[in-house]
Design a protein around this nucleic acid. Structure first.
Lengths: 224, 224
DNA sequence: TATTTAAGATAGTAATACTATTATTTAAAA
DNA sequence: TTTTAAATAATAGTATTACTATCTTAAATA
């Protein structure tokens, strides 16, 4: 029996479900590759179509515009991370161990997940580091939020917040600390690699240092 | 005697120094207004030129492209914040008081500084919250960094890092904690106003809550 | 077999991000 | 005061981007 992991996506993000056809899956696959290679600003539907071997109009039948496509793949990533979190912390009683797992999961460049054929998770992880915040740092964030575009991110933040509260039920800022952990796991990685003097990891350029920094930050903050 | 505050800018950011002419000052002034109103994605040199009453070509004589203009005004902001930091922490001995001042300075929506005629600081502060990270989250961050585009930001981060070390000389991650404070002062503000469930300040929507959160985070982390 | 549906092919438009040219005004230098 | 240079304004033009529309073909389904 083959198991294939399916992440349920918000239908408002697409015009036609990309999971349901070869072309759709190719759009996701090549989008990740192109955004990973050239960044989101340089990414266009024309280049995407050329890379797939279809036409611009073909892509537009799946996604209204490139921003929604970005939000789609980012949502997919958070959904996938949520699954990994649930899976990895399942049956663990100690919330401290759980929280450490979460920090490691968010900070580590994942391995390719073979149960998700057309998605290259390591590339997607890099996209999240460089482009993740562009999903919500827009003028239309309010409208996007109303359409629940950021639900996977908010759900994840909530899960992390709950684990924080398990560690210390009296801690006053579980959601803010959760969003700080998630954002900083990515941003410190970006800084480490591109603006190293903004971090203390420039020598080793090792993700493990980020994990140590975040663990120190989090467990001192919640006073464990 | 009138005092005018001049922030020295990196000449690689512009083609012609905007401080040196009326048109130049108008470009800065109206850029801030337009980016504040419509966001950076919707901002074009054509709209800017129309808003000033000049032509697109006129703007291009000052700035190569809109990204460099964004980096310019963001650099200006960090230079101005650096000045405010130096000014406000001058003669303060206690590093804890200093660090608190820094957190407050970064988290508070500033008042308009009359010594900088053509710059509206409160609007600029909002731009930093929504668009600040777009200055460096690009594919050409390495080249930009080589040209010292992010020096004011890195200098500020360094200053904050030094104050952290004054509080606790043994703390291991002064730069990372400094960049965390700076980024989170802005990001928690953005979340509070646009994605409130990612924070614990959604009820009051008060900057003072962010300050309390960051103080709690920082002083627990460095164990004061 | 008829019919819906997806995909491919092609064309076209408005806006964006520029570059280039020339004419006019302003200001500094000779 | 005249000359010269520099800044600006006015206009035009191009390649690319971000779409929309239409028509045909192929494949799946009823």
């Amino acid at each position: 029996m083959e198991i294939e992991l399916q992440i349920k996506m918000n239908p408002s993000l697409y015009l036609r479900d990309p999971e349901q056809s070869e072309l759709g899956k190719n759009i996701i696959k090549h989008s990740i590759q192109l955004i990973y290679d050239n960044g989101f600003e340089a990414f266009t539907f024309k280049k995407l179509a050329e890379s797939i071997g279809t036409t611009e109009a073909g892509v537009y039948r799946y996604f209204e515009n490139k921003h929604k496509l970005l939000v789609y793949i980012i949502s997919w990533y958070w959904g996938w991370i949520q699954f990994q979190l649930n899976y990895q912390t399942n049956n663990i009683k100690d919330p401290i161990v759980k929280l450490k797992k979460v920090i490691t999961l968010l900070s580590t460049n994942v391995e390719d997940d073979i149960t998700t054929g057309h998605v290259d998770e390591p590339q997607l992880h890099q996209i999240l580091i460089s482009e993740g915040s562009k999903a919500y740092l827009t003028n239309h964030v309010g409208m996007d939020n109303k359409q629940q575009f950021f639900k996977p991110y908010k759900d994840l933040c909530n899960s992390v917040g709950e684990i924080i509260l398990e560690c210390n039920p009296k801690y006053k800022y579980p959601h803010s600390l959760a969003s700080t952990i998630i954002e900083m796991a990515h941003l410190q990685n970006f800084f480490m690699n591109h603006l190293p003097s903004l971090t203390d990891f420039s020598k080793s350029k090792d993700e493990k240092e980020i994990i140590k920094y975040l663990e120190d930050l989090v467990f001192n903050t919640i006073r464990i």
